[in-house]
Design a protein around this nucleic acid. Structure first.
Lengths: 226, 226
DNA sequence: ACCTGTGAAATCGTTCACAGCA
DNA sequence: TGCTGTGAACGATTTCACAGGT
């Protein structure tokens, strides 16, 4: 274990490993080697070992990793052993989809507030959460102690919403709008952007005029980075 | 201009540049230098020049880039000068949100089919699109010539849906489910995963016990990779 | 015998710095 | 003079390959 700073690539992979370990645990497996993990989930075993080694020595030489133990370690590393309060801004279809997103049900993330500007929506409920007026963002966010803001508003409204989030002192943002947000060092913005996702696929479809080729002769398939 | 293979990091940035250029064009600007582009949108000017240089010489030394021209070049490079047919699988809130996602209105991407397994939904319409039975995926997808499949179903249904997509010969997939999909070299999967987005933010919030520090003494702010 | 943890090598990506063109 | 395009330097990340523990 070294005390370097950890790359975001590594922590993103930690999320993947966690998901894989949960799947294995669900199947009743108790132990796994980096090689078999890599085979099964199309990962790279050296990379798994290196990623894990940044945080400690979790494996047993000659044996592998204890699945439940490693899973719990990763949960700790990612900070998933506590609970986070989310505010969703935008009570349209997307915002509502996040509010009752089933994968959040059993997770560390709990939607505590939902905002919109539409007077017809304010006061109504989605998934048990009352829609608040965006005007009151700061006071409501303070009251329920929001850790993470989720931007689910149209592109044109996004910069304003982002300013409100900053002013409220919220440090973490999940952004669905196709808009660049300039965060300072104190904040982290993670964008999940349908537009750039589709543009990336468009490029891929454009750059592959040779459908059906066998790739490199004997090359180990280059791992895609999804 | 070199004839190397282009990194996905580069093509993702091309999407960003395109967005920036559209914004500038919307303001009536006609020309921009890599430096001013970088300043305005918190990018790196050397990187902009290098990214663009992979595809040709688009600028004029001493002057900069013609905004409309460069925009149109990037549109060509990304393959956005043609239209793509999308199929959305899952007519829940998320799938419906994508169907009438406003940013798609003026884009190269057109939703042509929507699928679900729920008999109560099949036959109804969302945003002008009739919901088809997922059973008929292959035949419907063939008929309307789907280029890109969008997975908007619960995690447990995802592997099955992915198999159907493969069998239908669709090469590009946008996946919202928190599930690892193993694509062969012929396919590209792009995952927009709320769960790993949140886990990444969780890690960030966990690793910053020193709120309010002034970061590195005189360090050039490390560019975040959102 | 097997598998982890890790230096060292290889690869990939970014930034610098400047030659050369407008 | 101003700004692009690009080798070269630098830095980050991945992969190799093996020492060492079980």
């Amino acid at each position: 274990m070294k005390s370097e700073k950890i790359s975001q690539l590594t922590t993103n992979r930690l999320s993947i490993y966690l998901r894989c370990l949960k799947e294995l645990a669900g199947e009743g497996q108790t132990s796994v080697s980096s090689d078999s993990l890599a085979d099964r989930f199309h990962l790279n075993s050296a990379q798994i070992r290196k990623d894990l080694a940044y945080f400690g020595e979790f494996g047993i030489r000659g044996v592998g990793y204890d699945i439940a133990l490693l899973r719990d370690h990763i949960i700790k590393i990612l900070g998933l052993d506590r609970s986070y309060n989310l505010a969703i801004i935008g009570a349209g279809r997307l915002g509502s989809a996040v509010v009752d997103y089933e994968a959040l049900r059993l997770s560390s993330f709990h939607v505590k507030a939902l905002f919109d500007v539409d007077p017809k929506k304010i006061g109504k409920k989605v998934g048990g959460i009352v829609i608040s007026d965006l005007k009151n963002f700061q006071s409501v966010a303070k009251k329920v102690n929001i850790d993470i803001a989720v931007i689910a508003v149209p592109a044109h409204a996004t910069p304003d919403v982002f300013e409100k989030i900053k002013k409220a002192g919220i440090k973490a943002v999940l952004n669905f709008a196709p808009v660049r947000l300039n965060a300072d060092d104190e904040m982290r913005v993670r964008s999940l952007d349908v537009t750039s996702g589709l543009e990336n696929l468009s490029y891929f479809l454009t750059e592959r005029p040779q459908t059906g080729e066998r790739s490199k002769p004997a090359g180990k398939a280059r791992r895609s980075k999804e």
